[in-house]
Design a protein around this nucleic acid. Structure first.
Lengths: 121, 121
DNA sequence: TGAGTGACCTACTTTTTGGTAAGTTATTTT
DNA sequence: AAAATAACTTACCAAAAAGTAGGTCACTCA
């Protein structure tokens, strides 16, 4: 049993998971991995199905955990930008693996995501 | 939007996640990765905090998704054994990455899991 | 013979999660 | 001047997930 900041983890994997479980988290992170800088509404428009409630909740937690950083571009008309931190980038192999793994499975089931990517919005 | 077996996925990552999200799934899989063959009670004893209800539920889903396979060792005194399938083994980079990533983070926070592993049950 | 073990299942309840829809502030566009 | 956009927040509620505690069947061990 590993203990850190009042929380307990059964093993390192359990610990790692604590950063990334939560609906939308990996999707948000990988989105940033592929697009680097995104606004709040970029997420709204590109993650089909997220409610704003969930989105801001997850963004807040990711920020708290230092995986992403929010930059305030302007205050008067409030504009922001989200990006992966260096720490968030250390999860790159994860984004890549999950993507590759999924693509390969799909291919074996007759869906060529790479080839048909233009079909997907 | 990707469609497969009546379900929709926003991207390959979303699709991959559908196999592994669910409390305990990654933990069960990685457990099998490190120990190869495990009985039902092995899981009970080595995943601190799982309820039997959750355990059998997750095992069932993992089996359905062909990530693990259950072998019935004997019927009369009912004994079984769980193991990763070849397909389940294709997730090996995931188990490894999540483990390494966690260990490294912990180390940077003053917890040397490798060195202190004997302390953890 | 009675207790314990292994591999579960089931009903019931509680907790957590997530959806819905509306509201806020300040600006830009029409 | 009205509508739309950006970036959120909030309250309320339904649904889903997970905990609890019990039960089953068939051994095996003391």
């Amino acid at each position: 049993m590993i203990q850190l900041n009042d929380k307990k983890y059964t093993c390192p994997i359990d610990f790692s998971l604590s950063f990334i479980d939560g609906k939308w988290k990996i999707l948000i992170l990988s989105h940033l991995h592929y697009c680097s800088n995104r606004s709040y509404s970029d997420f709204c428009n590109n993650l089909p199905g997220v409610s704003e409630k969930m989105l801001s909740q997850q963004l807040k937690e990711l920020e708290r955990d230092k995986l992403i950083i929010k930059t305030i571009l302007s205050k008067k008309p409030y504009r922001v930008e989200y990006a992966l931190t260096e720490f968030g980038k250390t999860l790159t192999p994860l984004y890549q693996f999950l993507s590759d793994w999924g693509i390969q499975y799909l291919k074996q089931n007759g869906i060529d995501y790479i080839k048909d990517q233009h079909l997907y919005k």
